[in-house]
Each structure stands twice: as structure tokens, then as C-alpha cells.
Amino acid sequence: MGFKLLSKLLVYLTASIMAIASPLAFSVDSSGEYPTVSEIPVGEVRLYQIADGVWSHIATQSFDGAVYPSNGLIVRDGDELLLIDTAWGAKNTAALLAEIEKQIGLPVTRAVSTHFHDDRVGGVDVLRAAGVATYASPSTRRLAEVEGNEIPTHSLEGLSSSGDAVRFGPVELFYPGAAHSTDNLIVYVPSASVLYGGCAIYELSRTSAGNVADADLAEWPTSIERIQQHYPEAQFVIPGHGLPGGLDLLKHTTNVVKAHTNRSVVE
């Protein structure tokens, strides 16, 4: 069995187990497998329904001669939608809004960016022009300005110390501490036991640490421990890039980060 097929099978099995364990909360999309990078042309966006009122959005972007996937989250909030992270750029984010209108038909009224990198804030200006209120932590807003990236308009308070959590509509926002970046936030959907790890969490097929220019490698494993301790009931975990899975993604990420750190020390 090929690795790609095995990865998709694991996603399907995880979703099936969740649907059985929580039949009222989960209505997993039966329309197909989780979209992969090879299936999404740059400039297009796919939506994948995880649970009743919960979707991931998947886009792709060219970077350094390669094409990478990027995940975000959409959560229903009454007759409105909360968006977590842009679709990595203005063109993708405009396509995301169009796809949401086509498939869901509810307005996106608020959006949260989970850290300051372009795959999370690139497209904020498109959201703002569409009347979406954009939010991020003060740290993310400051770092985005320093980096020359787009800056969300509103500040999220109460997320300055490791372990801080605040309720934001249908989700809980959690600051686990520094990891992929010093400002990275985690998003949890309690009604569906869905954990969105953003770039602080890796997919299972990833074996290298990737972009760690703004990471705190020493603190990252401790931050992941905080996530595990705060959300032990999480059933569906979405990484910032690639295929979702279960809580095993947290341990896998820790292993990859520690291996990278150990290699760096040896070198």
C-alpha cells in the first residue's frame, strides 16, 4: 500500500471513529477524501466538511520552486461564519470567499490569524475590503508590521502568557507558548472536538522541520505538551499544512522538532 493511500485511509478511519463516538456532533463529509496538494491548482481553494458547521479550507501556493498546501478553518456561528487564517495570499483568499459563498452561503463576518507569517495573514486586506472584521493577538499584529505583512485590524486580548485561553464565538483560542513562531495560536472547536494546530503542528508525513527561522526550538516541545494537557479530548487535529489526523500529530511534531534540534547540535 502506497504512503499517500495509507495517509488518506488514516484520515478516513479517524473521521469514521469520530462519527461513531459522537453521532450528534459529527456529520463528516462523505463526498470524498481530504484534498491534497496535487489536486488543488494554485489560485483555487477546496472546502472539506469535518463536522456539522465545521470545515477546513485548503489552498496551495508556490514557494521556492515548489507547491505547498495550506489549511485553515471555518466555523459556523449562528447565521454567520468565523474564518481562521487566510488562504495564503490575496488571490487565494478572494477564491476562498467565493467558494464559501458557493458552498455554504453564509457571510464571513470575523477572521482570526493564528500567527504573523504570510500563509496566515496574506489576504487580510481582501477580507477587510469584503467587510470582514480581522483579528490577531497584539504580538501577531506587531510582528506582521515588522515583517511588512498585512496586519489584522483588531487585537485579541488575554493571550499574552503561555497557557492563556479565551473564548471567541464558537471557538476557544489558546496560546501554548512559542513553537513554530513566538505568537502562534491554537484554535479548538469544543462542539466538535476539532483542534486546529496551525503551523505549530505537523502532518504525519512530514519528517523535516522546514521553516524554523522564527521558531523557538527549545520551547516548542513544552508548548505541545500544554496543548495535549489542555485538549486531551480532541479527536480531529488539523495541521497548518497537509493531512489531518488525531492527537498523534502532536507527538510526531515533537519528535521531528527534537530530531532537528539534535542534528543542529551535532553539526
Score class of each variant (00 low, 15 high):
residue 32 G to Y: 08
residue 223 S to F: 03
residue 43 G to M: 10
residue 36 T to C: 13
residue 261 T to H: 12
residue 169 G to F: 13
residue 55 W to A: 01
residue 41 P to M: 14
residue 65 G to A: 06
residue 42 V to I: 05
residue 262 N to R: 08
residue 112 V to P: 02
residue 28 V to H: 15
residue 54 V to L: 05
residue 103 Q to A: 07
residue 238 I to C: 10
residue 219 E to T: 14
residue 248 D to R: 09
residue 160 S to T: 13
residue 80 E to A: 13
residue 112 V to L: 08
residue 27 S to P: 05
residue 166 V to L: 12
residue 44 E to D: 07
residue 124 V to S: 09
residue 199 C to Q: 00
residue 48 Y to G: 08
residue 242 G to W: 02
residue 95 A to H: 15
residue 182 T to A: 05
residue 155 S to P: 10
residue 228 Q to W: 11
residue 198 G to V: 02
residue 96 L to H: 01
residue 62 S to G: 07
residue 202 Y to E: 11
residue 147 E to L: 08
residue 249 L to A: 02
residue 38 S to A: 10
residue 110 R to N: 12
residue 66 A to Q: 07
residue 161 S to W: 13
residue 194 V to W: 01
residue 238 I to D: 00
residue 185 L to N: 03
residue 136 A to N: 02
residue 107 P to M: 09
residue 114 T to C: 00
residue 50 I to A: 08
residue 23 P to H: 05
residue 96 L to P: 01
residue 100 I to V: 13
residue 5 L to R: 10
residue 227 I to P: 01
residue 109 T to A: 12
residue 219 E to I: 04
residue 1 M to W: 03
residue 146 V to I: 07
residue 197 G to V: 14
residue 70 S to N: 07
residue 60 T to V: 07
residue 101 E to V: 14
residue 67 V to R: 08
residue 134 T to H: 06
residue 144 A to K: 05
residue 140 T to H: 02
residue 198 G to Q: 03
residue 119 D to G: 01
residue 246 G to M: 07
residue 160 S to G: 14
residue 26 F to W: 06
residue 53 G to H: 06
residue 4 K to N: 10
residue 141 R to Q: 04
residue 77 D to F: 05
residue 32 G to I: 04
residue 237 V to P: 00
residue 83 L to H: 00
residue 124 V to G: 08
residue 171 V to Y: 00
residue 212 V to L: 13
residue 140 T to P: 01
residue 235 Q to Y: 07
residue 215 A to R: 11
residue 136 A to Y: 01
residue 253 T to M: 01
residue 259 A to Q: 08
residue 185 L to Q: 02
residue 223 S to H: 02
residue 99 E to A: 13
residue 243 L to M: 06
residue 92 N to A: 14
residue 265 V to W: 11
residue 61 Q to D: 07
residue 206 R to Y: 15
residue 223 S to R: 03
residue 50 I to L: 08
residue 221 P to N: 15
residue 134 T to Y: 01
residue 215 A to E: 12
residue 91 K to L: 14
residue 43 G to K: 14
residue 209 A to L: 08
residue 29 D to Q: 11
residue 219 E to F: 15
residue 60 T to S: 11
residue 13 L to A: 12
residue 265 V to I: 05
residue 131 G to V: 04
residue 28 V to Y: 15
residue 214 D to S: 08
residue 14 T to N: 08
residue 166 V to G: 12
residue 148 G to H: 09
residue 25 A to S: 06
residue 197 G to Q: 01
residue 41 P to T: 05
residue 24 L to E: 07
residue 72 G to R: 00
residue 99 E to I: 14
residue 259 A to S: 06
residue 16 S to W: 13
residue 114 T to I: 00
residue 37 V to R: 08
residue 166 V to T: 10
residue 171 V to P: 02
residue 76 R to H: 07
residue 53 G to N: 05
residue 206 R to G: 11
residue 90 A to M: 15
residue 236 F to D: 14
residue 103 Q to Y: 15
residue 67 V to H: 05
residue 45 V to A: 07
residue 165 A to C: 14
residue 263 R to I: 06
residue 64 D to V: 07
residue 181 S to R: 01
residue 229 Q to R: 10
residue 139 S to C: 05
residue 133 A to V: 12
residue 84 I to G: 01
residue 67 V to M: 04
residue 49 Q to H: 04
residue 142 R to C: 10
residue 266 V to Y: 06
residue 60 T to H: 07
residue 22 S to E: 05
residue 46 R to M: 12
residue 33 E to N: 12
residue 158 G to T: 14
residue 215 A to S: 11
residue 143 L to Q: 07
residue 73 L to D: 02
residue 152 P to S: 12
residue 249 L to V: 10
residue 126 V to Q: 14
residue 188 Y to V: 13
residue 70 S to I: 02
residue 23 P to R: 07
residue 76 R to E: 08
residue 118 D to T: 08
residue 161 S to I: 11
residue 127 L to R: 02
residue 245 G to D: 08
residue 148 G to F: 12
residue 231 Y to E: 01
residue 42 V to H: 09
residue 43 G to D: 06
residue 248 D to G: 09
residue 265 V to F: 04
residue 191 S to H: 05
residue 128 R to L: 04
residue 253 T to H: 00
residue 17 I to K: 05
residue 22 S to P: 06
residue 221 P to S: 11
residue 182 T to V: 12
residue 61 Q to N: 08
residue 80 E to C: 15
residue 75 V to T: 11
residue 164 D to L: 14
residue 17 I to Q: 04
residue 143 L to C: 05
residue 37 V to L: 09
residue 109 T to S: 13
residue 62 S to M: 04
residue 118 D to E: 08
residue 3 F to C: 04
residue 49 Q to T: 07
residue 178 A to E: 10
residue 114 T to D: 00
residue 44 E to Y: 09
residue 72 G to C: 01
residue 115 H to C: 00
residue 101 E to D: 14
residue 85 D to G: 00
residue 166 V to K: 13
residue 179 A to E: 03
residue 56 S to C: 07
residue 5 L to W: 12
residue 52 D to W: 07
residue 261 T to W: 10
residue 116 F to L: 03
residue 44 E to A: 10
residue 199 C to I: 00
residue 224 I to F: 03
residue 19 A to N: 04
residue 161 S to F: 15
residue 146 V to T: 12
residue 49 Q to L: 08
residue 163 G to Y: 13
residue 76 R to I: 06
residue 67 V to L: 06
residue 177 G to Y: 00
residue 147 E to R: 09
residue 86 T to M: 02
residue 145 E to V: 11
residue 237 V to S: 01
residue 14 T to K: 13
residue 186 I to P: 00
residue 118 D to N: 05
residue 113 S to G: 12
residue 10 L to C: 09
residue 10 L to K: 14
residue 9 L to E: 07
residue 232 P to D: 13
residue 122 G to Y: 14
